[in-house]
C-alpha cells in the first residue's frame, strides 16, 4: 500500500492531467467551431465547382482534354493523404492512414503519396510506402493561397505522366461526434458521376469556350481541382479538431473518475491511520492510568 504522501502526489498529478486535457478540450471546441464555419463557407463554391466539373465530364465525348480522359492502363497512382501535425486526437490520424493503405496498399499500380501533416508522414513512412512530397505545419486557418502549391504539384504529376490517377484521402466532417475517412478521385475527372439529364441521353449542348477551349479548360480544371483539395483539407481540419475535442473530453472524464477512486482510497487510508493513532493513544493512556492507579 502506497504511503499517504505518495497518494497525495498521485492525486495531484492526475488532477493536473485533467486540467490539461480540459484546457485542450476547450481550445479544440473553439477551433472546431471556426474550422466548421470555414468548411461551410467554401461548400457553396466547391459544390458549384463540382457541378460544373460534372457537366464537363459528362461531355467528354465531345471535348478532348487530357485531364478529362481516363488513361488505360493505370500504371501510376498519386494519393494525397490529409492528416494532422499533432496527435492526441483519438484515432483521427490512424483512421485516415488505414483508409489510404487499405484502398491503395494492394493496388496493382505503383502508388506514391503526397502527405499533409507530420503524423501521417510518420505512419506512412513506417508502412514503407514511397512519399514524394510532404506538407506540414500548415497555418491553423489556411487560406486558398497557402494550399495552392499542393494542387499545382498534383496536376504537374498528372500532366507529366508520373501519375495516371490522382486521389485524395481525407476525413469527412459529418458531425462533432462523427467523422469518416474517405477517398475521392481528383484526376482524371471521369470519376465524377454524370448528371442525371445527361445519363438520360437528352440533347447535349455543345459548349462555346472563351478564350480557346484548351486554355480555358486548363484554367478551369486547375482551379476546380485546387478548390476540391482546399475543401478536403478544411474538412479534415474540422474533423481533427472535433476528434481531439471528443478524445480530450473522454480523457478528462477518465481522469476525474481516477481522481474519485484515488481520493476514496486516500480517505480510507487516512482514516485507518487516524484510527491506528487513536488506538495507540488510547492504549498509551490506558497504560499510564494503569501505572498511576497501581502506584
Amino acid at each position: 500500500m502506497a504511503s499517504l504522501r505518495e497518494m497525495r502526489l498521485r492525486i495531484r498529478s492526475v488532477r493536473n492531467i485533467a486540467q490539461v486535457t480540459r484546457a485542450l478540450q476547450t481550445v479544440s471546441a473553439s477551433k472546431v467551431r471556426r474550422a466548421q464555419a470555414a468548411v461551410l463557407a467554401t461548400r457553396p463554391y466547391a459544390a458549384k465547382a463540382l457541378e460544373v466539373l460534372g457537366h464537363l465530364a459528362g461531355r467528354r465525348n465531345t471535348i478532348v482534354h487530357p485531364m478529362l480522359t481516363p488513361r488505360n492502363p493505370v500504371r501510376n497512382i498519386l494519393a494525397i493523404v490529409v492528416s494532422g501535425d499533432r496527435g492526441l486526437a483519438g484515432a483521427y490520424n490512424a483512421n485516415v492512414v488505414r483508409r489510404a493503405l487499405s484502398r491503395f496498399g494492394d493496388s496493382p499500380a505503383a502508388v506514391h503519396y503526397i502527405v499533409i501533416g507530420r503524423k501521417g508522414r510518420e505512419m506512412l513512412r513506417r508502412a514503407g510506402v514511397p512519399i514524394t512530397a510532404e506538407f506540414s505545419n500548415l497555418p491553423p486557418a489556411p487560406s486558398y493561397a497557402d494550399l495552392s502549391a499542393i494542387g499545382r504539384l498534383a496536376i504537374e504529376d498528372y500532366i507529366e505522366g508520373k501519375a495516371d490517377e490522382v486521389h485524395i484521402v481525407f476525413t469527412q466532417f459529418i458531425s462533432l461526434l462523427h467523422q469518416q475517412a474517405a477517398v475521392q478521385q481528383l484526376l482524371p475527372l471521369s470519376g465524377l458521376a454524370a448528371p442525371a439529364e445527361e445519363a438520360a441521353g437528352g440533347p447535349k449542348p455543345v459548349y462555346l469556350f472563351e478564350p480557346g477551349q484548351t486554355q480555358l479548360l486548363d484554367i478551369a480544371i486547375n482551379r476546380l481541382v485546387s478548390i476540391e483539395i482546399y475543401e478536403s483539407i478544411l474538412e479534415s481540419l474540422a474533423s481533427e479538431h472535433a476528434a481531439r475535442m471528443v478524445t480530450m473530453r473522454n480523457a478528462t472524464e477518465n481522469a476525474n473518475e481516477l481522481i474519485g477512486g484515488l481520493q476514496l482510497d486516500y480517505n480510507k487510508a487516512r482514516q485507518e491511520s487516524i484510527t491506528g493513532d487513536l488506538l495507540d493513544i488510547a492504549a498509551g493512556t490506558e497504560a499510564l492510568t494503569a501505572q498511576t492507579s497501581a502506584r
Binding site: P205, F209, E210, P211, A220
Partner: peptide
Amino acid sequence: PGSEGLLGILPHHTPLLTT
C-alpha cells in the same frame, strides 16, 4: 466581365464556359 470583353447573358443563351 468576360476575359474577351463584356458579356450580356439573356435566357436561352448557348452553353458557354468562360474566364
